[in-house]
Computed example of a mutant assay.
Amino acid sequence: MNDPRLPNLTSRNFPTAEEDARTLESQRYAGPESAYRLAFTDTNFLLREELRTVRMQLELLKPEMLQRELGIESTIVIFGSARILPEDQARERLEAARSTGDATAVARAEAALAMSAYYEQARRFAAIVTERSAKLASPIYVVTGGGPGIMEAGNRGAYEVGGKSIGLNIVLPHEQAPNPYITPELCFQFHYFALRKMHFLMRSKALVCFPGGFGTLDELFETMTLIQTGKSRPRPILLFGRAFWEKLIDFEHLVATGMIGAGDLNLFRFVETAEEAWDHLASFYGFDAIPNEETNNV
């Protein structure tokens, strides 16, 4: 039996970086102009222009390592506008607009109320994914951009059924605070858009895209380009609301003018309801047919 007073054969030969970081710095060299700090604890040093590649590596590693430690292997990404409101808020805005008599404000509020249906569908879809995938050997986690609107709806749907969800927030000139429904240990903040978009796709088994603006279109078309060019494996891309998307983008025109091939229209599928979206994913991956122990690689 080992004597606890004796060194263990597996003991570290050197202190850990954390242990060194906790040691008191010399008071003589503790001033703000001092270069005495350990490099990895010196924020001013890490924020230098020359350290960009190091910061990019850290931004890649942190979400990857923490998700791996929590056993997260499969995700479904929900994209969509930060401006789409829950139905109750949209109704309040419409009532306020009507009280002013401003026709333009009323028209915008009526449009916002109509679009709020997508908030409810995103919320419902996230709840379905979270509940029905819980029985799989590798549960599926909802991922959003972590902000308001459709992003909030996705995290909220998972939260309301007792599940965890991921938020990949981004630092913007106008502050975008994370919504309150993200699981705290899965709420990440990014400086680099490119690395954030990479993390959206690294574990994703499907992309579900609700109506949105420039950011949503950027994320959608980057995903389709990666699949179209063979840089990423095929996966379902579901576009909620055929009427919205076909009015926004004339996909047939792209085919007719030779800008894309007819087969490229198979990269995505239109859906209208949360149930329809889940049914397509269940059919694509065979969720309802594969025994739980065989779904580890979904």
Rank of each mutant, 00 (worst) to 15 (best):
V143L: 14
G145D: 10
G145Q: 06
R132T: 04
G147W: 01
P178D: 03
G147M: 03
K164Y: 05
Q176L: 13
A134V: 06
S133Q: 10
G147C: 03
I128D: 05
G163Y: 07
V161E: 02
V171E: 12
A177I: 08
M151H: 13
S165C: 05
M151P: 05
V143Q: 11
T130F: 11
Y141M: 15
S165E: 02
P139W: 08
V129P: 04
N155P: 02
E185K: 07
G145C: 10
P178T: 05
L186E: 13
Q176F: 14
E175L: 03
E152G: 04
S165I: 05
Y181M: 12
G154I: 04
I170F: 07
I128T: 09
M151E: 09
G163V: 05
P178H: 08
Q176I: 15
K135I: 13
V142H: 06
T183D: 15
L172Y: 01
L172M: 12
G149Y: 09
T130M: 00
A153L: 07
P173L: 11
Q176C: 11
N169H: 01
A177G: 00
G163M: 03
Q176V: 14
P180L: 12
N169D: 00
K164S: 02
I182R: 00
P178W: 01
G145H: 10
G163S: 10
Y159V: 01
A134S: 15
L136G: 06
A153R: 05
T130V: 14
T144F: 03
P148F: 01
H174I: 11
G147H: 02
A153Q: 07
E185V: 14
